[in-house]
Nucleic acid binder design. Structure first.
Lengths: 175, 175
DNA sequence: TATTGTTATACTCTATAACTATA
DNA sequence: TATAGTTATAGAGTATAACAATA
Protein backbone atom coordinates (compact mmCIF):
# COMPACT_ATOMS: atom_id res chain seq x y z
CA UNK A 1 0.00 0.00 0.00
CA UNK A 2 2.97 2.20 -0.26
CA UNK A 3 5.35 3.19 -2.95
CA UNK A 4 2.46 4.36 -5.01
CA UNK A 5 2.11 7.89 -3.81
CA UNK A 6 2.84 9.65 -7.01
CA UNK A 7 4.54 12.67 -5.73
CA UNK A 8 7.93 11.96 -7.18
CA UNK A 9 7.26 14.52 -9.85
CA UNK A 10 8.32 17.92 -8.74
CA UNK A 11 7.39 21.24 -10.28
CA UNK A 12 10.47 21.72 -12.44
CA UNK A 13 10.45 25.42 -12.00
CA UNK A 14 10.43 27.29 -8.80
CA UNK A 15 12.79 29.10 -6.58
CA UNK A 16 12.84 26.55 -3.85
CA UNK A 17 16.17 26.25 -2.21
CA UNK A 18 15.56 23.77 0.51
CA UNK A 19 18.09 21.06 0.99
CA UNK A 20 17.04 17.61 -0.06
CA UNK A 21 15.84 15.68 2.91
CA UNK A 22 14.53 12.27 3.54
CA UNK A 23 10.95 12.12 4.53
CA UNK A 24 11.14 12.71 8.22
CA UNK A 25 8.11 13.36 10.37
CA UNK A 26 10.13 15.65 12.51
CA UNK A 27 9.79 18.93 14.19
CA UNK A 28 13.17 20.58 13.81
CA UNK A 29 14.84 17.28 14.38
CA UNK A 30 18.32 18.58 14.06
CA UNK A 31 18.83 20.89 16.94
CA UNK A 32 16.27 19.21 19.09
CA UNK A 33 16.73 17.37 22.31
CA UNK A 34 17.75 13.79 22.15
CA UNK A 35 14.47 12.71 23.66
CA UNK A 36 12.50 14.33 20.91
CA UNK A 37 14.62 12.80 18.23
CA UNK A 38 14.23 9.38 19.78
CA UNK A 39 10.50 9.76 19.91
CA UNK A 40 10.24 10.86 16.31
CA UNK A 41 12.33 8.02 15.09
CA UNK A 42 10.53 5.53 17.27
CA UNK A 43 7.19 6.70 15.96
CA UNK A 44 8.41 6.63 12.42
CA UNK A 45 9.69 3.07 12.66
CA UNK A 46 6.63 1.81 14.44
CA UNK A 47 4.27 3.44 11.98
CA UNK A 48 6.08 2.04 9.00
CA UNK A 49 6.13 -1.47 10.32
CA UNK A 50 2.56 -1.27 11.52
CA UNK A 51 1.30 -0.14 8.16
CA UNK A 52 3.16 -2.89 6.39
CA UNK A 53 1.85 -5.57 8.73
CA UNK A 54 -1.68 -4.28 8.64
CA UNK A 55 -1.73 -4.19 4.86
CA UNK A 56 -0.46 -7.74 4.64
CA UNK A 57 -2.80 -9.07 7.29
CA UNK A 58 -5.63 -7.48 5.39
CA UNK A 59 -4.54 -8.88 2.10
CA UNK A 60 -3.68 -12.40 3.12
CA UNK A 61 -6.08 -12.98 5.98
CA UNK A 62 -8.64 -10.22 5.70
CA UNK A 63 -7.97 -9.15 9.24
CA UNK A 64 -6.26 -6.40 11.19
CA UNK A 65 -3.51 -5.96 13.72
CA UNK A 66 -6.00 -5.21 16.49
CA UNK A 67 -7.78 -8.51 15.95
CA UNK A 68 -4.52 -10.34 15.53
CA UNK A 69 -3.31 -8.98 18.84
CA UNK A 70 -6.44 -10.10 20.60
CA UNK A 71 -6.09 -13.58 19.17
CA UNK A 72 -2.47 -13.61 20.23
CA UNK A 73 -3.44 -12.93 23.81
CA UNK A 74 -5.86 -15.82 23.77
CA UNK A 75 -3.35 -18.06 22.04
CA UNK A 76 -1.00 -17.80 24.96
CA UNK A 77 -3.76 -18.42 27.48
CA UNK A 78 -5.29 -21.84 26.99
CA UNK A 79 -7.47 -21.19 30.01
CA UNK A 80 -8.94 -18.21 28.22
CA UNK A 81 -9.46 -14.70 29.46
CA UNK A 82 -12.35 -12.46 30.37
CA UNK A 83 -13.38 -9.35 28.52
CA UNK A 84 -11.93 -7.16 31.21
CA UNK A 85 -8.64 -8.97 31.21
CA UNK A 86 -8.31 -8.60 27.49
CA UNK A 87 -9.28 -4.99 27.79
CA UNK A 88 -6.49 -4.42 30.23
CA UNK A 89 -3.96 -6.42 28.26
CA UNK A 90 -4.60 -4.53 25.09
CA UNK A 91 -5.00 -1.22 26.88
CA UNK A 92 -8.31 -0.62 25.23
CA UNK A 93 -11.72 0.27 26.63
CA UNK A 94 -14.35 -2.31 27.46
CA UNK A 95 -16.68 -1.07 24.79
CA UNK A 96 -14.01 -1.39 22.15
CA UNK A 97 -13.28 -4.93 23.24
CA UNK A 98 -16.91 -5.88 22.86
CA UNK A 99 -16.79 -4.76 19.26
CA UNK A 100 -13.62 -6.65 18.52
CA UNK A 101 -14.88 -9.79 20.20
CA UNK A 102 -18.19 -9.70 18.35
CA UNK A 103 -16.36 -9.53 15.08
CA UNK A 104 -14.04 -12.40 15.95
CA UNK A 105 -16.88 -14.49 17.26
CA UNK A 106 -18.91 -13.89 14.14
CA UNK A 107 -15.93 -15.06 12.13
CA UNK A 108 -15.77 -18.21 14.20
CA UNK A 109 -12.32 -17.48 15.52
CA UNK A 110 -13.21 -17.52 19.19
CA UNK A 111 -15.95 -18.59 21.51
CA UNK A 112 -17.13 -17.32 24.80
CA UNK A 113 -18.53 -19.38 27.61
CA UNK A 114 -20.34 -18.04 30.57
CA UNK A 115 -18.22 -18.45 33.65
CA UNK A 116 -19.73 -21.06 35.89
CA UNK A 117 -19.09 -19.13 39.05
CA UNK A 118 -19.83 -15.57 38.03
CA UNK A 119 -22.51 -15.27 35.47
CA UNK A 120 -21.56 -11.72 34.63
CA UNK A 121 -18.32 -12.77 33.04
CA UNK A 122 -17.26 -14.72 29.99
CA UNK A 123 -14.24 -16.76 29.27
CA UNK A 124 -12.96 -16.15 25.79
CA UNK A 125 -11.04 -18.88 24.06
CA UNK A 126 -9.74 -19.58 20.61
CA UNK A 127 -11.96 -21.95 18.69
CA UNK A 128 -10.31 -24.86 17.01
CA UNK A 129 -10.29 -23.24 13.60
CA UNK A 130 -9.38 -19.99 15.30
CA UNK A 131 -6.29 -21.59 16.69
CA UNK A 132 -5.36 -23.02 13.33
CA UNK A 133 -5.96 -19.79 11.50
CA UNK A 134 -4.06 -17.85 14.11
CA UNK A 135 -1.18 -20.25 13.70
CA UNK A 136 -1.07 -19.50 10.01
CA UNK A 137 -1.24 -15.79 10.64
CA UNK A 138 1.42 -15.88 13.31
CA UNK A 139 3.83 -17.70 11.05
CA UNK A 140 3.41 -15.22 8.25
CA UNK A 141 3.52 -12.35 10.70
CA UNK A 142 6.82 -13.54 12.02
CA UNK A 143 8.24 -13.90 8.54
CA UNK A 144 7.24 -10.35 7.74
CA UNK A 145 8.74 -8.98 10.90
CA UNK A 146 11.97 -10.83 10.33
CA UNK A 147 12.16 -9.49 6.81
CA UNK A 148 11.58 -5.95 8.06
CA UNK A 149 13.91 -5.97 11.02
CA UNK A 150 16.25 -8.78 10.17
CA UNK A 151 18.57 -6.66 8.14
CA UNK A 152 20.06 -5.34 11.33
CA UNK A 153 23.04 -7.25 12.57
CA UNK A 154 22.45 -9.59 15.49
CA UNK A 155 24.45 -7.32 17.72
CA UNK A 156 22.46 -4.28 16.73
CA UNK A 157 19.29 -6.24 17.30
CA UNK A 158 20.16 -7.33 20.75
CA UNK A 159 21.28 -3.83 21.68
CA UNK A 160 18.08 -2.41 20.34
CA UNK A 161 15.98 -4.88 22.24
CA UNK A 162 17.85 -4.11 25.39
CA UNK A 163 17.28 -0.41 25.10
CA UNK A 164 13.66 -0.76 24.19
CA UNK A 165 13.18 -2.99 27.17
CA UNK A 166 14.76 -0.36 29.36
CA UNK A 167 12.51 2.29 27.90
CA UNK A 168 9.46 0.15 28.38
CA UNK A 169 10.29 -0.35 32.04
CA UNK A 170 10.51 3.36 32.56
CA UNK A 171 7.23 3.86 30.82
CA UNK A 172 5.65 1.17 32.96
CA UNK A 173 6.65 3.06 36.03
CA UNK A 174 5.93 6.46 34.70
CA UNK A 175 2.54 5.98 33.09
CA UNK B 1 -13.94 -17.44 40.17
CA UNK B 2 -10.42 -17.62 41.40
CA UNK B 3 -10.31 -14.07 42.64
CA UNK B 4 -6.74 -13.42 41.66
CA UNK B 5 -7.17 -13.74 37.97
CA UNK B 6 -4.46 -11.22 37.33
CA UNK B 7 -1.54 -12.51 35.40
CA UNK B 8 0.81 -10.96 37.88
CA UNK B 9 -0.07 -13.46 40.54
CA UNK B 10 2.62 -16.04 40.68
CA UNK B 11 3.58 -19.08 42.63
CA UNK B 12 5.48 -17.62 45.56
CA UNK B 13 8.71 -19.21 44.65
CA UNK B 14 10.08 -21.64 42.23
CA UNK B 15 12.85 -22.52 39.90
CA UNK B 16 12.01 -20.07 37.27
CA UNK B 17 14.65 -19.59 34.72
CA UNK B 18 12.83 -16.82 33.02
CA UNK B 19 13.30 -13.25 34.08
CA UNK B 20 10.31 -11.61 35.69
CA UNK B 21 8.19 -9.94 33.11
CA UNK B 22 5.59 -7.25 33.13
CA UNK B 23 2.37 -7.53 31.24
CA UNK B 24 3.54 -7.93 27.71
CA UNK B 25 1.37 -7.80 24.61
CA UNK B 26 3.37 -10.57 23.09
CA UNK B 27 2.95 -13.70 21.15
CA UNK B 28 5.12 -16.24 22.90
CA UNK B 29 7.74 -13.63 23.38
CA UNK B 30 10.24 -15.75 25.16
CA UNK B 31 11.28 -18.33 22.69
CA UNK B 32 10.55 -16.10 19.79
CA UNK B 33 12.99 -14.65 17.39
CA UNK B 34 14.77 -11.53 18.34
CA UNK B 35 13.07 -9.64 15.55
CA UNK B 36 9.65 -10.43 16.90
CA UNK B 37 10.57 -9.37 20.39
CA UNK B 38 11.97 -6.12 19.09
CA UNK B 39 8.84 -5.41 17.16
CA UNK B 40 6.57 -6.12 20.09
CA UNK B 41 8.55 -3.91 22.38
CA UNK B 42 8.81 -1.19 19.79
CA UNK B 43 5.09 -1.25 19.28
CA UNK B 44 4.42 -1.27 22.96
CA UNK B 45 6.62 1.73 23.63
CA UNK B 46 5.29 3.69 20.69
CA UNK B 47 1.69 3.00 21.60
CA UNK B 48 2.18 4.05 25.18
CA UNK B 49 3.86 7.28 24.31
CA UNK B 50 1.42 8.02 21.55
CA UNK B 51 -1.56 7.56 23.81
CA UNK B 52 -0.08 9.79 26.46
CA UNK B 53 0.72 12.53 23.98
CA UNK B 54 -2.62 12.31 22.29
CA UNK B 55 -4.50 12.54 25.55
CA UNK B 56 -2.53 15.59 26.61
CA UNK B 57 -2.81 17.32 23.28
CA UNK B 58 -6.54 16.76 23.46
CA UNK B 59 -6.80 18.05 26.96
CA UNK B 60 -4.57 21.10 26.74
CA UNK B 61 -5.04 22.10 23.13
CA UNK B 62 -8.09 20.23 21.95
CA UNK B 63 -6.15 18.74 19.10
CA UNK B 64 -4.58 15.48 18.01
CA UNK B 65 -1.22 14.07 17.08
CA UNK B 66 -2.17 13.85 13.41
CA UNK B 67 -2.97 17.55 13.28
CA UNK B 68 0.06 18.41 15.33
CA UNK B 69 2.26 16.50 12.92
CA UNK B 70 0.80 18.31 9.96
CA UNK B 71 1.41 21.65 11.64
CA UNK B 72 4.94 20.57 12.45
CA UNK B 73 5.63 19.92 8.81
CA UNK B 74 4.43 23.37 7.90
CA UNK B 75 6.32 24.96 10.76
CA UNK B 76 9.60 23.81 9.32
CA UNK B 77 8.69 24.99 5.83
CA UNK B 78 8.17 28.74 5.77
CA UNK B 79 7.60 28.47 2.04
CA UNK B 80 4.70 26.17 2.71
CA UNK B 81 3.84 22.86 1.13
CA UNK B 82 1.25 21.46 -1.23
CA UNK B 83 -1.38 18.95 -0.30
CA UNK B 84 0.49 16.22 -2.10
CA UNK B 85 3.74 17.04 -0.43
CA UNK B 86 2.12 16.86 2.97
CA UNK B 87 0.45 13.65 1.97
CA UNK B 88 3.79 12.14 1.18
CA UNK B 89 5.49 13.50 4.27
CA UNK B 90 2.88 12.10 6.58
CA UNK B 91 2.47 8.92 4.57
CA UNK B 92 -1.26 9.41 4.35
CA UNK B 93 -3.63 9.41 1.42
CA UNK B 94 -4.67 12.56 -0.37
CA UNK B 95 -8.25 12.23 0.72
CA UNK B 96 -7.25 11.99 4.34
CA UNK B 97 -5.09 15.08 4.00
CA UNK B 98 -8.01 17.04 2.64
CA UNK B 99 -9.97 16.22 5.77
CA UNK B 100 -7.14 17.20 8.10
CA UNK B 101 -6.49 20.43 6.25
CA UNK B 102 -10.14 21.41 6.26
CA UNK B 103 -10.25 21.01 9.98
CA UNK B 104 -7.08 23.01 10.54
CA UNK B 105 -8.22 25.71 8.18
CA UNK B 106 -11.58 25.96 9.90
CA UNK B 107 -9.71 26.40 13.16
CA UNK B 108 -7.70 29.21 11.64
CA UNK B 109 -4.40 27.43 12.11
CA UNK B 110 -3.36 27.44 8.46
CA UNK B 111 -4.21 29.04 5.20
CA UNK B 112 -3.98 27.90 1.69
CA UNK B 113 -3.19 30.04 -1.32
CA UNK B 114 -3.63 29.00 -4.89
CA UNK B 115 -0.25 28.52 -6.47
CA UNK B 116 0.41 31.23 -8.98
CA UNK B 117 1.98 28.88 -11.47
CA UNK B 118 -0.20 25.83 -11.23
CA UNK B 119 -3.76 26.55 -10.38
CA UNK B 120 -4.46 22.97 -9.44
CA UNK B 121 -2.25 23.20 -6.38
CA UNK B 122 -2.33 25.03 -3.09
CA UNK B 123 0.40 26.20 -0.88
CA UNK B 124 -0.40 25.53 2.73
CA UNK B 125 1.15 27.73 5.38
CA UNK B 126 0.76 28.31 9.06
CA UNK B 127 -1.31 31.35 9.83
CA UNK B 128 0.10 33.81 12.29
CA UNK B 129 -1.97 32.51 15.17
CA UNK B 130 -1.35 29.03 13.90
CA UNK B 131 2.37 29.56 14.27
CA UNK B 132 1.95 30.94 17.76
CA UNK B 133 -0.35 28.15 18.85
CA UNK B 134 1.91 25.57 17.33
CA UNK B 135 4.80 27.07 19.25
CA UNK B 136 2.91 26.60 22.49
CA UNK B 137 2.01 23.06 21.59
CA UNK B 138 5.52 22.19 20.52
CA UNK B 139 6.97 23.39 23.80
CA UNK B 140 4.58 21.35 25.85
CA UNK B 141 5.00 18.40 23.54
CA UNK B 142 8.71 18.49 24.05
CA UNK B 143 8.34 18.68 27.80
CA UNK B 144 6.13 15.64 27.77
CA UNK B 145 8.48 13.66 25.61
CA UNK B 146 11.42 14.56 27.79
CA UNK B 147 9.51 13.48 30.85
CA UNK B 148 8.61 10.17 29.23
CA UNK B 149 11.96 9.29 27.75
CA UNK B 150 14.29 11.36 29.81
CA UNK B 151 14.65 8.81 32.55
CA UNK B 152 17.00 6.89 30.36
CA UNK B 153 20.62 7.76 30.85
CA UNK B 154 22.21 9.94 28.19
CA UNK B 155 24.28 7.04 27.02
CA UNK B 156 21.28 4.77 26.71
CA UNK B 157 19.49 7.52 24.85
CA UNK B 158 22.16 8.05 22.33
CA UNK B 159 22.54 4.33 21.78
CA UNK B 160 18.83 3.99 21.32
CA UNK B 161 18.71 6.83 18.85
CA UNK B 162 21.54 5.32 16.92
CA UNK B 163 19.87 1.96 16.63
CA UNK B 164 16.53 3.40 15.71
CA UNK B 165 18.20 5.44 13.03
CA UNK B 166 19.80 2.32 11.70
CA UNK B 167 16.47 0.55 11.70
CA UNK B 168 14.78 3.43 9.98
CA UNK B 169 17.36 3.40 7.22
CA UNK B 170 16.75 -0.26 6.59
CA UNK B 171 13.05 0.35 6.49
CA UNK B 172 13.53 3.20 4.06
CA UNK B 173 15.30 0.87 1.72
CA UNK B 174 13.10 -2.07 2.31
CA UNK B 175 9.65 -0.55 2.16
C1' DT C 1 -3.67 12.16 -21.14
C1' DA C 2 -1.76 12.96 -16.66
C1' DT C 3 -1.93 15.20 -12.31
C1' DT C 4 -3.94 17.90 -8.26
C1' DG C 5 -7.08 17.90 -5.21
C1' DT C 6 -12.22 17.08 -3.67
C1' DT C 7 -16.11 14.39 -2.68
C1' DA C 8 -18.68 10.43 -1.46
C1' DT C 9 -18.58 6.38 0.87
C1' DA C 10 -17.28 3.07 3.98
C1' DC C 11 -14.60 0.81 7.47
C1' DT C 12 -11.79 0.35 11.74
C1' DC C 13 -10.63 1.64 16.08
C1' DT C 14 -11.60 4.21 19.83
C1' DA C 15 -13.83 6.50 24.10
C1' DT C 16 -17.73 7.78 26.97
C1' DA C 17 -21.87 7.25 29.26
C1' DA C 18 -26.13 5.20 30.16
C1' DC C 19 -27.84 0.77 30.76
C1' DT C 20 -28.60 -4.48 32.22
C1' DA C 21 -27.66 -8.33 34.83
C1' DT C 22 -25.55 -10.15 38.02
C1' DA C 23 -22.83 -10.09 42.56
C1' DT D 1 -23.65 -0.67 46.03
C1' DA D 2 -20.24 -2.43 43.02
C1' DT D 3 -18.75 -4.95 39.03
C1' DA D 4 -18.89 -7.20 34.12
C1' DG D 5 -20.23 -6.41 30.06
C1' DT D 6 -23.43 -4.23 26.30
C1' DT D 7 -25.34 -0.68 23.66
C1' DA D 8 -25.76 3.76 21.69
C1' DT D 9 -23.41 7.39 20.11
C1' DA D 10 -19.80 10.06 18.52
C1' DG D 11 -15.54 11.19 16.44
C1' DA D 12 -10.93 10.51 14.47
C1' DG D 13 -8.27 8.59 11.00
C1' DT D 14 -7.95 6.06 7.10
C1' DA D 15 -8.47 4.19 2.13
C1' DT D 16 -10.64 3.92 -2.32
C1' DA D 17 -12.73 5.36 -6.35
C1' DA D 18 -15.18 8.48 -9.16
C1' DC D 19 -14.83 13.12 -10.35
C1' DA D 20 -13.53 18.17 -11.65
C1' DA D 21 -10.28 21.45 -12.93
C1' DT D 22 -6.06 22.30 -14.78
C1' DA D 23 -1.82 21.12 -17.02
Amino acid sequence: MDATVKRKARPPKGTRVQPPRLAEPAHESDGAHLELRIWLRLLSCATRIEKALNARLRKEFNTTLARFDLLAQLARRPAGATMSEVSELLMVSNGAITALVQKLEADGMIHREVDSEDRRTFRLRLSQEGAKEFGRMARRHEEWVIALIGELSPVAQSDLLQHLTLLKRRLDKHT
